[in-house]
Design a protein around this nucleic acid. Sequence first.
RNA 1: CGGGGUGUAGCGUAGCCCGGUUAUCGCGCCACGUUUGGGACGUGGAGGCCGCAGGUUCGAAUCCUGCCACCCCGACCA
Length: 511
Amino acid sequence: MSKLIFFLLKRCNIYAKPLIMSKKLTKREDDYSKWYNELVVKADLAENSGVRGCMVIKPYGYAIWEKMQAELDKKFKETGHENAYFPLFIPKSFLSKEAAHVDGFAKECAVVTHYRLKNAEDGSGLIVDPDAKLEEELIVRPTSETIIWDTYRRWIESYRDLPLLINQWANVVRWEMRTRLFLRTAEFLWQEGHTAHATKNEAVTESELILDIYAEFAEKYMAMPVIKGLKTESERFAGAVETYCIEGLMQDGKALQAGTSHFLGQNFAKAFDVMFTSKEGKREHVWATSWGVSTRLMGALVMTHSDDLGLVLPPNLAPIQVVIIPIHRNDEQLDAISVKVNEIVKELRKKGVSVKFDNRTTYKPGWKFAQYELKGVPLRIAMGPRDLEEGTLEIARRDTLEKKSISQDDVVSYVEKTLEDIQNNLFNKALDYRDTHITEVNTFEEFKDVLEHKAGFVSAHWDGTKETEEKIKDLTKATIRCIPLNNKIEEGKCVFTGGKSTQRVLFAKAY
RNA sequence: CGGGGUGUAGCGUAGCCCGGUUAUCGCGCCACGUUUGGGACGUGGAGGCCGCAGGUUCGAAUCCUGCCACCCCGACCA
């Protein structure tokens, strides 16, 4: 009987399946990956474009990126770096000058071969003009070391020209086989610093300085705890002598490389013949670093804090820190509320708080509440006729979802204090998750068990060989994320081969 | 590049196996009215080269062939 009814309902298409579909987000525990994709789109951060693997970053998402940029840019400049801009195109021959570098990037380069289109003679439309073939193909930069070092050759003559501390904000293209919004796109935005130094020490110090800047930014602004460490040889940047990194841990227990800073030794100086005359009058190759963070940080931000209701943004990066929503029955009420709200807005702005008064009458309060939760606005104020009478307002935290009625007189100090609280709370929550997800193991059984049932970082001894690293990766999909910088030296046996080891390293499955 | 899948309105979809009136439903959109302290309701309306190109047929969203695009899983990667 019920089968028959269902059949009839189905026939008539009145069975109510997707009713809620458009509103509710997939839950993290149901499908973390799907949750992430939906969230990025629904919160208006970015969307897929008509170009394979390339995204459109929408205004709200771009506003967050701009805040990241502003803060990082400030830190770079405070430490003596200047911005410049180098070409998008790199002659193919440049790329091949540093052997390891080519190996690393050759497989994922977009190549420009022609410079003109024309109408096909058979009228079938636009075609590439075969007569307009480039003498030398151009690579769309996957990173700019080569073009920059080719330039530095002309800029550097003497120790007086050093150090050369340059950063550029740019887009790069890496033809990835599988892409995901922010985490891995064929084109992405980033900054890349490229510095030249007279001594090895100075260059190493530079790499470490930048790593500290990245770590501090991640923790203070993104509220994302990171582990500073060194990459193993096989995970190292193509062409680097040493790669420093910061590694974050996402809510699903997978690690994410959030930034890298490379000590390049003299590899690029030698490949591009960049020499300087020292104080002592000797000709020497310069020492180099390069370092970068990308729009991938946006993905990290989303995956570190957000929940099943939507985005959760740390106040230090939220484009809107406070949203004010009026509740009213008619225009007179809205006018009365607006008068009070505008005073509050003014005072908050004076304190540098970014606040939005959403007085649109085309949406209802409930809809707005849900919307700003989805967008992760840290604080929401609601004010209605009742509040107006009593001199109060309702204020809600996005991180704890806690609602409170406070006096209008206290709003500025409350907002300032609470934004700070939220920033700290988000960091501490993430830190707690991270710290409880670093598991020390001493046998390979434990190793696999933790990866499978708990996830997160696995701290284990390793014999230091590429072969072991490779085998562990094949068997478990976990890679060595880093050798932490502050590691304690401790005798031990490799978790896989039993070989000698002097310190533990961090393994994890990674994005 | 290997394996799997999907293309129907802005989005999510039904119909396809078994070809046949005007292509279904929900969300969203537009208008008007009532509403507004947690995703409103009613009435009316607009919106479709059914991925593209061929073929079969009196007739194709539906069957056949080719192509294209996208998604998921692997290998690669920030």
